[in-house]
Design a protein around this nucleic acid. Structure first.
Lengths: 194, 194
DNA sequence: TCTTCACTTGACATGGTGTCAAGTCTGGAT
DNA sequence: ATCCAGACTTGACACCATGTCAAGTGAAGA
């Protein structure tokens, strides 16, 4: 039964993803998604109960396809805190542009929808774990700055590498993606390593 | 003639401001603003051509009432780059919570409206000037980190003190307003001063 | 052949922005 | 005293979004 059903579902997810990548700052409508999928608007609701649910599902779909967690393994393999930090910036900094469209959409929807906020914070929690791992490694090596306590350093690292921050630097300040990665590495080492 | 007219206009601006402060993450509607002002929705359009225009006018109104530029004078009066940096965090960090509601609204509207984006970037340009002044002072004192070039440092300082960053730390990480100011001062000195 | 499931067609409710026309009410000028 | 202009109201309408419902179609499988 579900081969065909899954197919349509996946086609909706792909269309949503594609539209969001094309116009990350527009509110892509259910009609536009249906049109891009080649079905009616009502049919979308046969697969996703609401716009929010579709956005959450698309986020999960993209995460699955793009395999962030696999890429993150590089970080644990690094042999020092500084190397971990740099690997983090590399992996994450290269990941953001690939998921920016859907991430922006989820960020917008999160403001008014609890389920979306929960989904967003689930993602944030994963990133926080990575951040924590790095700060703790730096601390064990006695290389963590004493300007910040370890818990505060975890928060700060997370926020420094947030999508919002990336957006400000690349969109508003005109930094290239490569410049973001390079400068961010330098700044983070300067900020967190004593 | 305009005493009465100005009065209603100001009442609308005050109502808009108040509603946005109460619910910074909801899209306050024109009906809600009219209701809070005690006039009809249509009457609001007699004073402001569109929702965007009202948001921009409210931003300007709040800026005028709150007098950011006056407060900023403290920064120029500081006797060293580090003191300027700390004064900036003090002034700006205490300002953000007072204007957060309308700032958030303008940020939302900026995504889809060019006029709102222009208004936003006008504000950003003022802040950039302050950021530039501080980085240049640090550079003249030979105290600027060599991890970043001066122009990049200006961008980075601006982004570190962005409303988005403040929002992440105080809302998502649960930092108190005071903690934000204290930790940010320490981190910025660590990051930008060699 | 009959049923089930995915999808379509077409309608409707609700709530937002923005516009229009006609009416009311008040203060000020003649 | 009257008349007028300007501020505001009333009540409509267009348009577009999300979300819901009911009835119909069409094809694959039992």
């Amino acid at each position: 039964m579900s081969s065909e059903e899954l197919n349509t579902r996946t086609r909706i997810l792909e269309a949503t993803w594609k539209l969001l990548e094309q116009q990350p700052n527009k509110d892509v409508s259910m009609s536009a998604i249906a049109r891009a999928t080649g079905i009616t608007r009502q049919a979308v609701y046969l697969h996703f109960a609401s716009r929010t649910e579709l956005m959450i599902a698309t986020t999960e779909y993209v995460d699955e396809v793009k395999g962030l967690y696999q890429r993150m393994e590089r970080i644990g393999a690094a042999s020092s805190g500084i190397e971990m930090l740099e690997a983090y910036v590399d992996v994450w900094g290269n990941y953001i542009p690939e998921i920016y469209g859907i991430a922006r959409a989820l960020l917008r929807v999160k403001e008014t929808d609890e389920a979306a906020a929960a989904a967003w914070f689930r993602c944030m929690d994963c990133l926080r774990d990575v951040s924590k791992q790095i700060i703790e490694t730096l601390e064990q090596e006695d290389k963590l700055t004493n300007a910040l306590s370890p818990p505060d350093a975890i928060d700060m690292l997370l926020v420094m590498l947030s999508i919002e921050q990336w957006e400000l630097l690349t969109r508003d300040c005109g930094w290239s993606h490569q410049k973001y990665v390079n400068e961010m590495k330098k700044l983070l080492v300067q900020s967190f390593v004593s």
